[in-house]
Amino acid sequence: MTTIGATPTIDVRRAADRFRSEFGWLDSKHSFSFGHHQDPANTHHGLLLVNNDDIVDPGTGFETHPHRDMEIVTWVLEGSLVHQDSTGNNGVIYPGLAQRMSAGRGIMHSEKNDSWRLGGDVHRDPVHFVQMWVVPDEAGITPGYEQLEIDAELLSGGLVTVASGMPEHADHAAIRIRNSYAALHAARLAPGQSVTLPDAPFLHLFVPRGAVTLEGSGPLATGDAVRFTATGGQRVTATEPAEILVWEMHATVQL
Rank of each mutant, 00 (worst) to 15 (best):
179 N>Y: 13
229 T>N: 01
8 P>I: 05
127 V>E: 10
36 H>L: 09
135 V>H: 08
68 R>W: 09
71 E>I: 13
45 H>L: 14
49 L>P: 06
189 L>D: 10
171 D>F: 14
165 G>Y: 08
2 T>K: 06
146 E>I: 13
50 V>A: 11
213 T>H: 00
131 Q>V: 09
154 L>I: 00
75 W>T: 08
184 L>I: 11
189 L>E: 04
186 A>L: 12
172 H>Q: 12
160 V>N: 04
250 H>N: 14
131 Q>A: 12
56 V>C: 01
205 L>E: 06
233 G>R: 02
160 V>S: 01
99 Q>Y: 06
128 H>L: 04
60 T>N: 15
83 H>M: 04
119 G>D: 08
147 Q>E: 15
163 A>L: 07
2 T>M: 07
168 E>F: 04
16 A>K: 00
12 V>E: 07
235 R>F: 10
170 A>P: 07
237 T>W: 04
223 G>A: 14
223 G>I: 08
139 A>Q: 14
181 Y>E: 06
217 S>M: 08
125 D>L: 10
90 N>W: 08
5 G>D: 03
59 G>W: 00
105 R>T: 09
121 D>G: 09
103 A>Q: 14
251 A>T: 10
23 F>E: 13
66 P>H: 05
193 Q>E: 02
140 G>R: 10
153 E>T: 03
241 P>T: 14
51 N>K: 06
136 P>M: 10
8 P>R: 09
47 L>V: 01
98 A>D: 03
121 D>A: 10
8 P>K: 01
155 L>C: 02
63 E>W: 00
